[in-house]
Amino acid sequence: MSPANPFTRRKDRIDELAATAASPSGGIAEAGAVDEKPGVSLIASAWSRLKRSPVFLLGAGITLVFVVLALVSPLIAPHDPAAGLLLDQVRPQSNPVPGPQDGFPLGADSRGRDLLSRLLVGSQQTLIVGVFATITGLAGGLSLGILAGAFGGWVDALVMRVVDVMLSIPSLLLAFSIAAVAARPSQVTVIIAVAAVQVPVFARLLRGSMLAQRSSDHVVAARALGVTERAIVFRHMLPNSLAPVIVQSTLVLAVSIIDAAALSFLGLGNPNDRQPEWGQMLGRAQTYIYDYPHLAIYPALCIIVVALGFTLMGESLREALDPKSRR
């Protein structure tokens, strides 16, 4: 009746994703005419579909460029991103931000450091924050999810109530609180704060699809066969529940980059600006946002494009792994 509140909607979405993992068979059985080549595992056939998806290729392309840039940026950056090379041009009143000039195509920031170099090298920090936050969140979520999904019963109830409480707090607020609690903000606190937000999402997702697996025929069959509970969880339930989690991680990569940027923007990020990071650059730019919007626009654009890349990849991955989408 009432419009779904964002909290339940989010929960529904996670559960829906989880449900896609429950029936990996999809519509193959019905027709019998879908003949795939011998010895092709499900992953292989999903991959062959992915390779043909233009959305995936675009997303993967963006992501690849980003990762390569992050790796080689210290080598290709024209200047040291921490060196105030144009500091002599900075005049706090008349010219706080040096403009583009020879050797400095994008100009410099308010401390005379080359903007292009900072953007390039910033990709590294952004990638580190995104990847580690995702991995940490994934690890936490997977442990909780496996615990809940494998045991069920009161373990499940307990874990899930905790998870629900975490989900009911708006995610950014949760991240802010965690980051603010830390005595000295650093890169590590940013990663932890961003990861904590993702833990309940992953936990709920995995638990949902594990529970769906729990009552699935092939798990019952393994049980009837006398396979040990442990082997059932790790050989049958977990591998068949991972598809939505994998999809979610690519989406989370995008989200954590944005979240980390938001934390930096609000001053809860890494205070050490010798290591540039896009969110932090965006945060620093707010002082000059009216007069020198390009300081904000460049890092913002970078964040948007990279987040888009991960999101496109995640969505096409979801489509490829979704049994309903192939027939």
Partner: peptide, 19 residues
Amino acid sequence: RKDFQMVFQDPMSSLDPRQ
């Protein structure tokens, strides 16, 4: 369970697709 086994109705869903 070695002594008693089961054959299921739906051969697709009762076989783990990843094995």
